[in-house]
Simulated scan of single mutants.
Amino acid sequence: MVDASQRPLWALVLWASVGVLVGLGVVGILSIGVYALALAVVLAVLGLVLPASRSVAALAILPGLGVLPLVVGLSNLGGPGTYCSETVDTMTCAELLSPWPFLVPGLVLVVGGTWLVWRLVRRHSDRASAPDFR
């Protein structure tokens, strides 16, 4: 059995990638979403098959799900409204959305999910290192 202090980092990355791909699949369902969801299923099955990744690392799906809304919120930080930028030759304008409907859930998922994974991994490692007085 693998204790919490020896769990591989790749298990967290695997499950976080599943979360990112599920988020991308839902958002882009009419274009690349089907391929992203298919890859997410393949990675999830791989994560369930490999014994080292069947742990609290699976909760890394939550921060993975929050990455896409966080990126969309950060890219709309100047919004809502029209944002224009000028160079010597050109002037470009873009219509920006309000960032808050994207930033808040993204931050809650990324920060809350990371805290939850960190807390549970730490709890399991404390339990694994505790002496057994049977």
Rank of each mutant, 00 (worst) to 15 (best):
V13Y: 07
L14S: 04
W15Q: 03
A16S: 03
S17R: 03
V18S: 09
G19D: 00
G19N: 04
V20A: 04
V20Q: 10
L21Y: 10
L21C: 07
V22I: 14
V22W: 04
G23K: 02
G25K: 09
V27T: 14
G28A: 13
I29T: 13
I29H: 15
L30Q: 15
S31G: 10
G33K: 12
G33H: 12
G33P: 09
V34C: 14
V34G: 15
V34I: 15
V34E: 13
Y35H: 15
Y35G: 15
A36D: 09
A36G: 13
A38V: 08
A38L: 14
A38S: 11
A38I: 13
A40G: 13
V41K: 13
V42L: 12
V45W: 13
L48A: 12
L48S: 12
L50V: 10
A52F: 08
S53H: 09
R54A: 08
R54T: 01
V56I: 00
A57V: 00
A58H: 01
L59C: 00
L59S: 01
L59Y: 06
I61K: 03
L62P: 03
L62F: 03
P63I: 00
L65W: 06
G66I: 01
L68I: 11
L68C: 02
L68N: 08
L70W: 13
V71C: 10
V72M: 11
G73E: 00
L74F: 10
S75D: 08
N76G: 12
N76D: 09
N76H: 14
P80F: 01
P80D: 02
P80Q: 10
G81D: 01
G81P: 14
T82Q: 15
Y83A: 12
Y83K: 14
E86N: 13
E86R: 15
V88I: 12
V88S: 14
T90Q: 10
M91R: 15
A94T: 07
A94I: 08
E95I: 11
L97Q: 07
L97F: 07
S98C: 01
S98T: 06
S98E: 02
S98K: 03
P101T: 02
P101Q: 04
P101K: 05
F102C: 04
F102W: 06
V104M: 02
V104H: 07
V104L: 06
L107K: 05
L107N: 00
V108K: 06
L109K: 08
G112D: 05
G113A: 03
G113T: 00
T114A: 11
W115V: 02
W115D: 00
W118V: 03
R119C: 00
R119L: 04
L120D: 04
L120R: 11
R123Q: 02
R123S: 05
R123D: 00
R123E: 06
H124F: 04
D126E: 10
A128D: 12
S129M: 09
S129Q: 13
S129H: 14
A130C: 11
A130L: 11
A130D: 12
P131I: 11
P131M: 10
P131C: 11
